[in-house]
Amino acid sequence: MGMKVKEVAALSGVSVRTLHHYDELGLLIPAKTSEAGYRVYSDENLAELQQILFYRALGFSLKQIKEILTNPSFNRLEALVSQQQMLHQKRCQLDDMIRTIEQTIKEGKGEGTMTREERFKGFDFNLNPYEQEARDRWGDEVVDETSKKLQQFGGKQQEKMNMIYRRLADVRHLQPDSEEAQKAIGKWFQFLNTIGTYSLEAFAGLGEMYVADERFTTNIDQFGGGLASFMRNAMKEFARRNN
């Protein structure tokens, strides 16, 4: 038996307005609409809503969540395991931050002192929820090698990377499968393989991360609005053509 939107709102704690918004975004589409025009949600919809709320609790944007849930390779059980791991990681970080606050309060009351390191314990802005996924799909060696080479980046390499981004931004108005776009994205594929070892599958997967992870999107789109999405589509086409 289906549930009406007010019932789902009462069950989940999500407002009716938010559920309507999710529907409008194509993020959570009700199983059907009654003859009277009411949204009717199925048990499958409730499972989808649970996934959305887990990702929201982890700090993912609605855009990121939609990209994840509509990806053909999405697997709900795998997602739950990944979410569990991220929540454990987040809990550990929060525990560290709570202890840091407690120590800071004590120091403010004159009841102790803190080292410089203790003052910033628990703050970590480098956590990447996609790193474990990358390791699972492409192996530790690829991820570790790429991270190591990125840390050794010099000015010339950085400038070369920025030049490729600027060139891609120049052609982002073209169709991703156009010859000019494919030539430009090919340069990106070649460049990435100078700092790591990317298969065509890994290359296409990386493109998905450009739009699924808001940090990637923000960084890339500074070269031109919509560049991350364009690169994702061009990388997917490049992988298909050259497979």
Rank of each mutant, 00 (worst) to 15 (best):
R137Q: 10
L80K: 06
Q50V: 08
L62V: 05
S73D: 07
F54Q: 02
P72H: 08
D96V: 02
Q51Y: 00
Q85C: 04
Q50A: 10
S42H: 07
H88P: 00
A57Y: 08
S82D: 15
C92H: 09
T70F: 00
L77R: 10
F125I: 14
D43K: 09
R116E: 08
R135S: 03
I101T: 07
Y55S: 10
D95K: 04
S73K: 13
N71K: 06
L49V: 06
I65Y: 03
G110R: 15
P129C: 01
A57L: 07
R119C: 09
E111R: 05
M97C: 09
S42N: 02
F123Q: 07
D124R: 15
T104N: 07
G122P: 06
R137F: 06
Y41D: 01
Y55G: 02
K63M: 03
S61E: 03
N128W: 09
Y55I: 00
K109F: 11
I98E: 11
M114L: 15
D124T: 15
D140C: 00
F123T: 14
K90S: 13
I68R: 12
L87A: 10
Q51V: 08
M114Y: 03
R135E: 03
L46A: 00
E102G: 01
E131K: 04
R116C: 03
D124Y: 14
E117D: 13
I52G: 02
K90L: 10
I101S: 11
Y130H: 12
G139P: 15
K109L: 14
Q93T: 12
E48Y: 01
K121P: 04
N126S: 14
E102I: 03
M97W: 05
M97F: 04
L49W: 00
T70Y: 01
S42A: 13
Q89N: 15
Q64R: 04
G112F: 02
E131D: 06
D43P: 02
L77W: 04
T70L: 06
S42M: 04
R76S: 15
Q84T: 05
A134Y: 13
E78Q: 11
F123A: 12
D140F: 00
Y130M: 12
L69H: 00
S42I: 03
N45P: 13
N45V: 00
L127G: 11
D140L: 02
A79L: 01
R91T: 12
E48A: 07
Y55V: 00
L62N: 13
G122N: 03
E111H: 03
Q51A: 07
R116H: 04
E67G: 01
F120W: 13
K109N: 14
L69I: 06
D124C: 15
V81F: 12
E107C: 11
K106H: 13
R99K: 12
P72F: 07
A134N: 14
V81E: 07
F120K: 12
R99V: 13
L69N: 02
K63A: 06
